[in-house]
């Protein structure tokens, strides 16, 4: 099995990058993908970006995270 998750690149420095997803950040190797830039979505496995994600697919995943986040934020706001 291969556990992999979609995340967004926030920094690119040569063959190293930093990705963010769902409030978590991770250092990744960029050796396995072509030209990428901050803002691109990638699939991350074992510390490497293994593929650039098409915009639609990324949006679908992001939407799930955002929905959860929005629900929690609403809940927090109600009781703070």
């Amino acid at each position: 099995m291969c556990l992999a998750v979609p995340m967004q690149l926030i920094e690119v420095d040569g063959r190293r990058g930093r990705v963010r997803g769902g409030g978590v950040e991770l250092e990744v190797g960029l050796d396995l993908v072509g030209e990428v830039a901050p803002g691109d979505f990638v699939i991350v496995h074992a510390g490497f970006a293994i593929q650039q994600l098409s915009a639609e697919e990324a949006a679908e995943s992001l939407e799930i995270f955002q929905r959860i986040e929005a629900l929690l934020a609403e809940e927090d706001g109600r009781h703070d």
Binding site: C2, L32, H45, A46, G47, F48, I50
Partner: peptide
């Protein structure tokens, strides 16, 4: 240990 998803990450580490 791993299949096609993992092997490239290990190859990249070896090359590094």
């Amino acid at each position: 240990v791993g299949f096609e998803t993992t092997t490239p990450t290990i190859a990249a580490a070896v090359l590094q």
